[in-house]
């Protein structure tokens, strides 16, 4: 019975899900395998660099767990690759705003990352009000909204409100930056 319900759901979710690249298996998954293998190696190398401190009160020491995790990561990378080679693939996550019938829109993603990094670099110097406002404005722009002036007003309102409500009202850590003394 329960498989009936589950199947029903799956059908609904995968209706629009028919990218042509799917036919030859999902090769991009090998990238994830490579990432796991690299991570596993890095964890083992890091663990080997840890001083060996084992004594009566701590017979295990700090190296055992990372070594075990690194080995397991390598093992899983192999098992995952075998699964992919046999045609296994994970269902990309669906959602109300997600349209999987088109390929990935890398331009939007890169723009978002750029906006995000800009905020991380500027937040201490310019302060949350300016950098946070830029973050909101930039994200809305990257996602295709072209109401520049209206968005500027929304961004300013949002960052000013959050600054006063959270930083000044509730004592949350947010930098004032160049506007120190003005706000």
């Amino acid at each position: 019975m329960s498989s009936e319900v589950k199947d029903g759901l799956k059908d609904e979710r995968t209706v629009e899900d028919s990218r042509p690249s799917r036919e030859g298996g999902d090769r991009a998954q090998y990238g994830m395998c490579a990432f796991l293998a690299l991570l596993g190696t890095a964890v083992i190398v890091d663990a080997l660099g840890i001083e060996r401190v084992t004594n009566g009160t701590d017979p295990v020491g700090p190296r055992a767990v990372p070594l075990l995790l690194g080995a397991l990561l390598l093992l899983l990378a192999v098992l995952y690759a075998v699964d992919v080679a046999r045609g296994g693939r994970g269902e990309p996550e669906a959602g109300e705003d997600v349209d999987l019938s088109q390929g990935s829109d890398w331009r939007t993603v890169l723009l978002l990352i750029a906006v995000f990094v800009a905020n991380a670099l500027l937040i201490e110097r310019l302060g949350w009000v300016i950098s946070g406002g830029l973050l909101f404005w930039g994200t809305a722009f990257a996602l295709g909204n072209r109401h520049y002036i209206r968005n500027l007003l929304i961004s300013a309102t949002l960052s000013l409100t959050t600054f006063y409500a959270f930083a000044i009202g509730l004592g949350v850590n947010l930098p004032a930056g160049v506007l120190q003394g003005i706000l």
Partner: peptide
């Protein structure tokens, strides 16, 4: 989630 949706935003 934001990045994932950005890559596949339903118009």
């Amino acid at each position: 989630e934001a990045l994932w949706v950005a890559a596949h935003l339903r118009r």
